[in-house]
């Protein structure tokens, strides 16, 4: 038996295989571990974008079908003022989250707190502006139940603003945790995931805005 073992190399009974193999080969603690949480968030965002793809499918289906009279109830030229302001708001909040994330990557706790606070505030302003927008549409007789086109139009806006709510909730949690000093440069997966999700929300808004208001 021992003769067979020696064929592997210079193993003796006391030496285990691991002791003669380069450490990288067996010890998963020595190689940088992949950031499971961040990868999970990215994969989840893929499914989120498929959800919006489904809603866009419905929207374009209504627009492409000549038997459906679209936009009969929509204001012919919906005002671009509020959505443009909202785009700027989201752009600034994205910058704030980036500032926060970069900050904690360099162990600057204050940058994290300031950045997330600004992003939360801007997220709240965005939701407020959207609710003003909805009620303005409603006074013009354009609502989710006014027509098939209205349903798909509002589905995109409402499901987006629900994501904003989810994102803001996530950011508030990150804010509370950062006030408790839970994040460091080597421990910031939640911040990274939150930032990524916020990027996604902003990107969806850009597409929603371009498609619903300008095309």
């Amino acid at each position: 038996m021992s003769a067979k073992v020696s064929s592997v190399g210079t193993l003796t009974k006391l030496q285990r295989r691991e002791d003669v193999t380069p450490p990288r080969m067996y010890s998963s603690t020595l190689v940088p571990k992949p950031n499971t949480g961040l990868i999970g968030a990215a994969v989840f965002i893929v499914s989120e974008s498929m959800f919006f793809l489904g809603l866009f499918l419905a929207y374009f289906f209504m627009r492409a079908d000549s038997t459906i009279v679209v936009r009969s109830d929509q204001p012919v030229h919906p005002s671009l003022v509020l959505p443009l302001i909202n785009t700027v708001i989201l752009a600034i909040s994205v910058a704030a989250m980036t500032f926060a994330e970069r900050g904690i990557a360099a162990d600057k706790q204050r940058h994290l707190v300031v950045g997330v606070t600004v992003a939360v505030a801007l997220g709240l302003v965005f939701m407020l502006a959207q609710s003003i927008e909805f009620s303005r549409f409603a006074t013009q007789g354009f609502s989710p139940s006014s027509s098939s086109f209205g349903s798909t139009f509002f589905a995109l806006l409402i499901f987006h603003v629900l994501r904003v709510l989810a994102g803001v909730t996530f950011m508030v949690i990150v804010l509370i945790r950062s006030l408790m000093g839970q994040f460091h440069s080597w421990r910031r997966t939640a911040v990274q995931a939150c930032t990524l999700y916020w990027y996604f929300i902003a990107a969806v808004w850009l597409v929603v805005f371009l498609v619903l208001y300008t095309s």
Binding site: G54, L57, A58, F61, M62, D65, T67, I68, P144, S145, S146, S147, S148, G150, S151, T152, A155
Partner: peptide
């Protein structure tokens, strides 16, 4: 009372 599938064209549901 939304109106996604109330149109004369029922294919949207089938596609999705």
């Amino acid at each position: 009372s939304t109106q996604f599938f109330t149109t004369a064209n029922p294919r949207l549901w089938q596609h999705m």
